[in-house]
Design a protein around this nucleic acid. Structure first.
Length: 318
DNA sequence: GTTGAGCGTT
């Protein structure tokens, strides 16, 4: 409310200065889109493995997270990105000690971390007949690097309408699985193939945030927790019940936060597993019912498509 | 050259 304009000029920059840490030397200027947002894919192109952005507020000296929604990073103010130096957020990197912030080191660690997370092939159902492997690759590259595209054809060479893709990073895979896709006017379902069912390890992406105060909105929770990784969903019960749920794109991020206390808006909140402590006996698998990743409702398509996408493959064949 | 739920070899 206090209008301290400071050094904010009216200049609108098409490029955003981004670094792996607060050192200007390694900073890279990255172009943003016409609507003012920065595509995560653009960021990842320069900083492989990055999952978000944060920056240090000039006055409060505290780190602020940048809102990320559907792969788009939104500027912190209406005025735009300004001259701030934005810092890449890598999965779980925040959980590291701050005494070792070598940029090359963190990048290497991130790469290693990504290899730990298993990527699987994804099946794409309902592809347009005119699809080519290049067109499909181009479409899915908005979610991250695509390392494989295979469109299945008949003996005659005629396209069968489905195919398989593979992303380079687990985060990209998650992002693609989180929604239905409209390719060339057709709704395309991207799922984990039946052959890989139960093979792909899944941990809860959702955490329980207790001791929330009344002035904590879903927006506040998202803004705060976005500095630890991409937040895909926030739920705050209304009327206020002193708790909330935050869903991360990366289950590793969610798990790393569990058991910790965090300070939001001056109040201490407790982060714990979103899974009820009393569950059915012998529940070691995180897949299936109950508290699977709730990535529904992100995009209610024009046709009001059923949420048969995502990982919720609940057909228990056998 | 047609078609529209499904599950991948080269």
């Amino acid at each position: 409310m206090n209008g301290k304009g400071e050094t904010f000029s009216e200049d609108i920059f098409d490029y955003i200065k981004v670094g792996e840490d607060e050192d200007d030397i390694n900073a890279v200027e990255i172009p943003c889109e016409h609507d003012g947002t920065l595509l995560l894919s653009t960021l990842v192109a320069q900083f492989p493995g990055a999952c978000g952005l944060k920056y240090r507020h000039p006055e409060t000296k505290s780190i602020r997270g940048i809102r990320l929604n559907d792969g788009k990073l939104h500027p912190p103010t209406e005025a735009g990105w300004g001259k701030n130096l934005y810092i890449c957020v890598f999965p779980k990197e925040n959980k590291r000690k701050m005494d070792d912030v070598s940029s090359e080191n963190s990048a290497a660690k991130t790469k290693r971390l990504e290899k730990k997370l298993t990527c699987s092939d994804l099946i794409c159902l309902g592809l347009p007949w005119k699809s080519t492997e290049e067109s499909i690759k181009q479409y899915f590259e908005q979610f991250g690097e695509v390392v494989m595209v295979q469109l299945k054809k008949d003996k005659n060479g005629s396209f069968k309408g489905f195919g398989f893709i593979r992303f380079a990073t687990y985060a990209s895979q998650m992002r693609a699985l989180a929604q239905r896709h409209n390719i060339d006017g057709r709704w395309v379902d991207v799922r984990i193939p039946n052959s890989k069912e139960g093979v792909v390890p899944q941990m809860p992406c959702k955490v329980f945030v207790g001791r929330c105060t009344e002035d904590m909105t879903a927006d506040d929770l998202r803004e705060y927790f976005s500095s630890f990784g991409e937040v895909t969903d926030v739920f705050v019960p209304r009327p206020f019940r002193a708790f909330g749920f935050v869903t991360f794109l990366d289950p590793e991020v969610a798990q790393s936060l569990c058991g910790e206390d965090h300070v939001i808006k001056g109040a201490s909140v407790s982060v714990s597993s979103a899974a009820p402590k009393i569950k059915n006996k012998s529940n070691q698998n995180w897949k299936d019912d109950s508290y699977g990743p709730n990535w529904d409702g992100n995009r209610s398509g024009p046709s009001g498509g059923p949420n048969n996408g995502g990982l919720m493959n609940c057909d228990k064949k056998r």
